[in-house]
Structures are given as structure tokens and as C-alpha cells.
Design a protein around this nucleic acid. Structure first.
Length: 581
RNA sequence: UGGGCGGUGGCCAAGCGGUAAGGCACGGGCCUUUGGAGCCUGUAUGCGUAGGUUCAAAUCCUACCCGCCCAGCCA
């Protein structure tokens, strides 16, 4: 019996969730849903919704919520609505609506024609409010904001009734109508639910349902000057849409009794709210209130700065949406506070890109190498595979000539143990090309800096194999000097040096943990000629260096790359270990 | 302090009374024309603490400790 639900989930779930884990997710939300399905609580329906407020850009924390909301609906053959919770005209803008839609689509989810807005329900919500007034369950209160706070009491002291609590139904109806008509100033009146000013849950102490805001709404314009609060709009919006499972984050747990109260008082369809812990990611911040100052105070270049955990930032960084979904699925759904290590995200990105990104050679910090015994004017076109993980991606030709560039860090005059790369007298392989041996080192007379290497090559080793079977330890990437293209490469590191930037001493704020070296720009990189004309957004693996993505800042004359994530670097670990011992 | 949640290895997270899954990270090894990828392998006598119930407890009971959320006319 249990198998049927599990199998159904496997069929649908695995389609869009490219997790390599073989075990199907068995989180507590799905358990509740399977129970509801079994008892036929909602007639076999599963209908969720993703309800963003259009007041900022989506980040990876939202991505997790999206994966849960859309993912669960999909798993059970249900639907997921996209609903904008636009009840506060002061903060919301259409610009954000568009950006949010783009991000959700980019992640790979489809809400069909079910694009809704809380503002679609303003008239209905107003009717609901009138109903509650007529039932004697809501009243217009003239207390000032300060007074309301005072009357509410505190966490340990009970509140006291507003002097306006017992107005007649007729008076309340009249006042509420006049609120709508625009007769009053902001803050002068408010509509409140009549619940219990001594309730231990502060949200039940006569919460505000409507407030006066004389502002233009991004969709309803100037039609309204009273707006429902989130608390009064959210549960009823879910009800109107026939949502079965209203999934949200933990902080709304204490709101649930209030939503239930409204729904019961109104005697309307009742969805089930289920709360889960929001995602926290190490070395970054995931709250709009934290992200916004980074943008507005210029710590980053914008919401789509590749260091930002926003979906637009991750997209520009080169992070594939599939990797983000894989990551979200791997972090699990639970109710405990968490701080997921960003290395898991990096792992998911590498995992995805390893299979799909074409390999290419790029030298980030070029060191000139002259191959003394290679003919001056000779140029060879060598074969290189585009992705050893996937032969179907084919091969390409790369030019080889007498003068090449290699990575500066791939040569050491006095190499430590376990250093497999080039050194005086040592032979290494140039990937796809020849074995070369370093015969001379040219230095700047004044600074002592190595400025050029002279090598010889073994003509017999074309393609990277020596006919006598001798082995070399190191294989280097390289580009032909005259054929290579100049490029700018932007290297990114964690935005914050601390795993939890919020965890700072008093008097200091999260920005104190900002990583001063989160961006390093390299301007004289050399990349292989096949990259000419690469489109913004295209992703590559720079052999031995990492995954890179063409930035929109690229021009016809100069490519700009963002490093999405480096390759795992065993040599760096060995070096670290050597230093420590 | 009132109310609501939560506490399983460094980080996530299964577990639902029958004797601690899995992933990331980390360590060891194999393999390799990317020090990449891949493959093999190691790591909780222990589940916030202390008692109790039971043949048997991470799972049930009791008390305590710690963390998070709520006092916006934000969402």
C-alpha cells in the first residue's frame, strides 16, 4: 500500500530533480501530504503556491522554497500557483514582478496560467472584512500607532482592550466605508479583528486587518487607499485559490492560529499550512534586508553581482539552474535551524558543469615560453577533445607554435617536494601537444623576476605520448602566443570571511565580516582562439583552473569571464599541509 | 519571564520501540594526457542533559539545559 505512493513519487519526482541520490525524499511535509491523500482530505488534490512579495530580488533561499512548493506539487501530480503578495504599495514595484518571474522560469518551473496577485482579491477581502464586522468580530480602532503598541501589552504582560472595541456594528460599517472612501489620514484609523487582548500569542491580540495607505499600488493604481495586512490577506488568498497545502517558513508558525481564526470566522475553505526551516548558507547572507544595503551602499556592483546569492547573481556567475535545484534537494526539508556549508553548493555546481562544460585552455597569469628547437614559422593544428566525460561533444583544433604561454605557477626554479610541474631541466607534457624540457630561465636583471623560459620539445611526442613509453608527472595547459586572445578574468571568493556573518560582536554589524578579497580582476589573461565570439552566459571549463562563464560585459574586442567555481585543487592542499608541517 | 518551535558526527539529514541511512567536508588508497573527473575505503558504544518505563529507547514518560521565532498600521 505504501509502495504505490512511493512509486508515484519516484516517477514524477526524478524527472525534474537530477539528484544523484537514489533514495526518494521522505521529508515530513511529504509525509503529511501522503497521509492527507490516504484519508482523502482534499479529494486527492495537491495544490501549492509560491507567494513572493515583489519588493526585491529572489535569492537562493527563495530557490529552496520554490523547489519545495513546485517540486511537491509536481511529485503528486498537482499544481503550484505563482502568487505575488502585493499588499503593501509602498514597497512593491512591477519591476520586481518581472524579475521574479524571470528567475522562477530560469530555475525551470512553470506556473501555467496561474499567475495571481493578492491585489486581485482586494474586493473580496474587503467583503470578508465587512462580513467580520457584521458578525461583531471586527472593529474600527482610532488609537494611534503608539497607543496600539501600548495597549498590546508585552510578552509577559497582557494587553488591554481598546476604548473603541465595543462600537456598534453600524458605526463600524460606516467608519470602515469612510476609510475606504478616503476620508481619513494615514494612521488615524485601522480595522482590527476582535479576538482577545489577553491572548498569550501576541498576534491574537486584536490584530490589524486593514490600514490606511494613501499610495499608488503597482497594479490597482489609486483605486484603494486602504490595504489589507499580510496576515489578513494571506490565508484567505490561499483559500480563494483552493490551495491544499500552504507551505511557508518557520517564522509564520505563530501566525497559523490567526489564519485559522480568520478562516473559521469567515467559514470558508481551509487550507493546511505547514512550516519548514528556511535555508541559511555559509559565508553569505540570505535576507533581503541584508542584501539591499550591500547593493545600495556599493559593496557589490548590483543585485546581479556574481558574488551575490541572488538568482540573478548566481546566473551571471555561471551557476546552472540544475545545480541550484540539485543543491536545494540535497539540503533536505526539516524544522531545525541550519547553516548549510557553501561547499555543498560548489560541489553541485562542479558536478553539473563537469558533465556539460566544454574544456578549453586559458592562461590566467601568462609566462612566456620559447621552444628553441621548434621551427620559427611553423604552426600545427592539434586535436583536442572537448570533454573527456562526454565523447559526443567532439574535438576541436588548437594551434601550436614556437612561442607559447604557460601559467606562471606552473614553473618553479627551486621546486619543493611533490611539485610535478616545470622546473629547470625537468620534462613535462603540454596537454594535447608535446613533451618539453626546460633548458634556460630568463630573469629581469633588476627584480630577479622570471620573465621567460627556454625549452626544447621532443618532436616524437606529438599529441602527448612519447614512443619510448617514458612518463612525465606533470601535464600543463598552454596557449600559442600569437594565436591566443586577450581576456579579462574575474575571480570570486566568498562574500564574507565568516561562515555566519550575522554572528558578530555587539556594536558591529554583518558588514564587518565582508571579505575584502572577494573579487580579483585579472586583465592580461590569454585564452585559446576557439573562444572568439563566445556568447555571454556560455560556460566552459578552463583546463586545470575551474569553470568560467562569459560575462555580459564582454565586447567584440575583449572577452570577460567570471569564475563560477574553481576545480578541486589537491595541490593546494598538499602545499597547505607542507606549510603546516 | 508568556506563547510557539527546535536540539542525531565539522555541516546538512534519515530514523516513527528491535539495537545509528545517505550526502557534503575531512583522511587513506587506486586510476588518470586536467594534481580535474571516476573508483575503493576510514570516521557517532553514540542521538542536548539527568532520571524513569520496557526483554529492548534516538524513538515512550518526567524534569532540567541550550537555541530560534513573536511586542511593524512589514512580509
Amino acid at each position: 500500500m505504501k509502495n504505490t505512493t512511493t512509486e508515484r513519487r519516484n516517477e514524477r519526482g526524478s524527472k525534474n530533480i537530477p539528484t544523484t541520490d537514489s533514495t526518494p525524499p521522505t521529508d515530513f511535509i511529504r509525509q503529511v501530504i501522503e497521509e492527507d491523500l490516504k484519508t482523502n482530505r482534499y479529494g486527492g488534490r495537491v495544490h501549492t503556491r509560491f507567494p513572493p512579495e515583489p519588493n526585491g530580488y529572489l535569492h537562493i533561499g527563495h530557490a529552496k522554497a520554490i523547489c519545495i512548493d513546485f517540486g511537491i506539487a509536481e511529485d503528486y501530480g498537482g499544481l503550484c500557483n505563482l502568487r505575488f503578495d502585493d499588499t503593501n504599495p509602498i514597497k512593491e514595484e512591477s519591476e520586481y514582478v518581472e524579475a521574479i518571474k524571470e528567475d522562477v522560469r530560469w530555475l525551470g518551473f512553470d506556473w501555467g496560467d496561474r499567475e495571481f496577485y493578492a491585489s486581485d482579491y482586494f474586493e473580496q477581502l474587503y467583503e470578508y472584512a465587512v462580513q467580520l464586522i457584521k458578525k461583531g468580530k471586527a472593529y474600527v480602532c482610532d488609537l494611534s500607532p503608539d497607543e496600539i503598541r501600548e495597549y498590546r501589552g508585552t510578552i509577559t504582560e497582557r494587553g488591554k482592550d481598546s476604548p473603541y472595541r465595543n462600537r456598534s456594528i453600524e458605526e463600524n460599517l460606516d467608519l470602515f466605508e469612510r476609510m475606504r472612501a478616503g476620508e481619513f489620514e494615514e494612521g488615524s484609523h485601522v480595522l482590527r479583528a476582535k479576538i482577545d487582548m489577553t491572548h498569550p500569542n501576541l498576534l491574537m491580540r486584536d490584530p490589524i486587518m486593514y490600514r490606511i495607505i494613501h499610495a499608488t499600488h503597482h497594479r490597482t493604481g489609486d483605486k484603494w487607499c486602504i490595504y489589507p495586512t499580510y496576515d489578513f490577506a494571506h490565508g484567505q488568498s490561499d483559500s480563494i485559490e483552493g490551495i491544499t497545502h500552504s507551505l511557508c517558513s518557520l517564522e509564520f508558525e505563530v501566525h497559523r492560529p490567526l489564519y485559522d481564526w480568520y478562516l473559521d470566522a469567515l467559514e470558508i475553505y481551509h487550507p493546511q499550512q505547514i512550516e519548514f526551516a528556511r535555508l541559511n548558507l555559509s559565508h553569505t547572507v540570505l535576507r533581503k534586508r541584508r542584501l539591499r544595503p550591500l547593493v545600495e551602499e556599493g559593496y557589490v556592483s548590483g543585485w546581479d553581482d556574481p558574488r551575490m546569492p541572488t538568482l540573478s547573481g548566481l546566473r551571471r556567475r555561471g551557476c546552472p539552474p540544475e545545480a541550484i535545484r540539485d543543491f536545494c534537494n540535497r539540503t533536505g526539508i526539516a524544522k531545525s535551524d541550519n547553516l548549510v556549508d557553501i561547499s555543498l553548493l560548489e560541489y553541485c555546481v562542479r558536478q553539473d558543469l563537469n558533465k556539460r562544460a566544454p574544456r578549453v585552455m586559458a592562461v590566467l597569469n601568462p609566462l612566456r615560453v620559447v621552444i628553441d628547437n621548434y621551427p620559427e614559422d611553423k604552426v600545427e593544428e592539434l586535436d583536442a577533445d572537448n570533454n573527456p566525460e562526454d565523447p559526443s561533444m567532439g574535438t576541436r583544433k588548437i594551434p601550436f607554435s614556437r612561442v607559447i604561454y604557460i601559467e606562471r605557477e606552473d614553473f618553479m626554479e627551486d621546486p619543493p617536494k611533490k611539485y610535478f610541474r616545470l622546473a629547470p631541466g625537468r620534462e613535462v607534457r603540454l596537454k594535447h601537444a608535446y613533451y618539453i624540457t626546460c633548458v634556460d630561465v630568463v630573469k629581469d636583471e633588476r627584480t630577479g623576476e622570471v620573465i621567460e623560459l627556454h625549452c626544447t620539445y621532443d618532436p616524437e611526442s606529438r599529441g602527448g605520448w612519447a614512443p619510448d613509453g617514458r612518463k612525465v608527472r606533470g601535464t600543463l595547459h598552454w596557449v600559442s602566443a600569437i594565436h591566443s586572445l586577450e581576456a579579462e578574468v574575474r575571480l570570486y571568493d566568498h562574500l564574507f570571511v565568516k561562515a555566519d556573518p550575522e554572528d558578530v560582536e555587539e556594536g558591529s554589524d554583518f558588514k564587518a565580516a565582508l571579505n575584502p578579497n572577494s573579487l580579483e580582476t585579472l586583465t592580461s589573461c590569454r585564452v585559446e582562439p576557439s573562444l572568439a565570439g563566445a556568447a555571454p552566459g556560455s560556460r566552459y571549463q578552463f583546463l586545470r583552473k575551474g569553470y568560467f562563464c562569459v560575462d555580459p560585459d564582454s565586447t567584440d574586442g575583449k572577452l570577460v569571464f567570471n569564475r563560477t567555481v574553481s576545480l578541486r585543487d589537491t595541490w593546494a592542499k598538499i602545499q597547505k599541509a607542507q606549510k603546516n608541517s
